[in-house]
């Protein structure tokens, strides 16, 4: 019932995002003896985590689920002392010697930061979403579920987070309308099963949320499912949709990006701010493969190690 996260904890390396790039970076920094914290939203939050069948990660013929592959990478990083916290980075202050990252559960301090948040951010709001935020639109069922006791709500999403939040809402709402953007859920089988068999949940496959309707507060959602437009009266809308934009919103424009919103780094994976690095899909420079992201994770970690130990950059060694 009581949760306590002591104020600011200091680490040598903060890694935001625990996908293949972040988890591999953590493996390398932790193994190099650097105190390391990975801030991550959960196993199925990222691109790899939502992939159901991986067969081309070298040495793991599989098929293996993306979530399982990520879990293996994280376990390995943890075995060398990397810590993981289930939290979402909300903002960051990156200039200065000590970098600060605020999550929902507190502030995290680090000497170096690796941004490996991936590229599953949403590009834009649906009409009505921003205007009705806090007026029935929510991104946190555990926070706000209690305000919808005995009412009808909609949940839009298809990953573990969306399903878990929908199940939380069944404790309060009279009915949960689940709008999955895909025909099938991209969630763990046991969660999907629980959702599908729940008496209070109506499932709409391949449902595209078009609009949140309401004057002062949410009154309905408009969406298309199987080509048919529908409007369902609800008082709450909980949105867990993903897109394909680099996730950089928490940076508040502190770091230069390309036109497409991708973070820009030098050949050592360092951004314009010393001590702040980035790797993986958030750079949008590579082909989206787990092993390539992992390779970048190793490279960025080695660059961070050198940064923290006063070496400007990696240099080749030709000495005999």
């Amino acid at each position: 019932m009581f949760q306590f996260s002591p104020g600011a904890k200091r680490y040598e390396v903060l890694i935001i995002g625990g996908g293949p790039a972040g988890a591999t970076a953590a493996l390398y920094t932790a193994r190099a003896g650097l105190s390391t914290l990975v801030i991550d939203k959960g196993l199925t939050a990222g691109a790899l985590g939502t992939t159901s069948r991986i067969v081309n990660y070298p040495g793991v013929p599989g098929p293996i689920s993306g979530a399982e592959l990520v879990r293996l990478m994280r376990d390995q990083a943890a075995s060398f002392g990397a810590e993981f916290v289930n939290d979402k980075a909300l903002r960051a202050e990156l200039t200065g010697e000590e970098k600060k990252v605020w999550g929902g559960q507190g502030v995290y301090l680090g000497q170096a930061v690796i941004i490996a948040t991936g590229a599953m951010g949403r590009a834009r709001f649906v009409p009505g979403e921003e205007r009705l935020l806090g007026r029935g639109v929510s991104y946190c069922a555990t926070c706000d579920g209690a305000f919808f006791r005995g009412r009808q709500v909609a949940v839009a999403g298809n990953n573990d987070e969306a399903v878990e939040e929908a199940l939380t809402l069944t404790r309060f709402a009279s009915r949960v309308h689940f709008l999955s953007p895909t025909p099938e859920l991209h969630a763990s089988p046991h969660l999907a099963e629980e959702l599908h068999s729940h008496a209070l949940v109506s499932f709409y496959p391949a449902a595209r949320l078009q609009e949140v309707i309401g004057a002062e507060t949410v009154e309905a959602v408009r969406f298309t499912s199987a080509g048919q437009e529908q409007v369902i009266p609800v008082e709450g809308v909980f949105i867990y949709l993903q897109g394909n934009m680099p996730v950089t919103d928490f940076l508040d424009g502190q770091l230069p990006t390309s036109e497409g919103g991708c973070l820009l780094v030098d050949s050592n994976f360092q951004t314009a701010i010393p001590g702040v690095f980035a790797a993986g899909d958030v750079l949008c420079k590579h082909l989206k493969q787990a092993v390539i992201a992992a390779a970048e994770g190793a490279q960025v970690a080695m660059a961070v190690d050198r940064y923290l130990h006063g070496r400007e950059k990696l240099r080749p060694d030709w000495s005999k």
């Binding site: 909300l90 929902g104 946190c140 555990t142 926070c143």
Partner: peptide, 10 residues
Amino acid sequence: VTPTCPYCPQ
């Protein structure tokens, strides 16, 4: 706030 809200303490 609600006690189950991880973003509220901030």
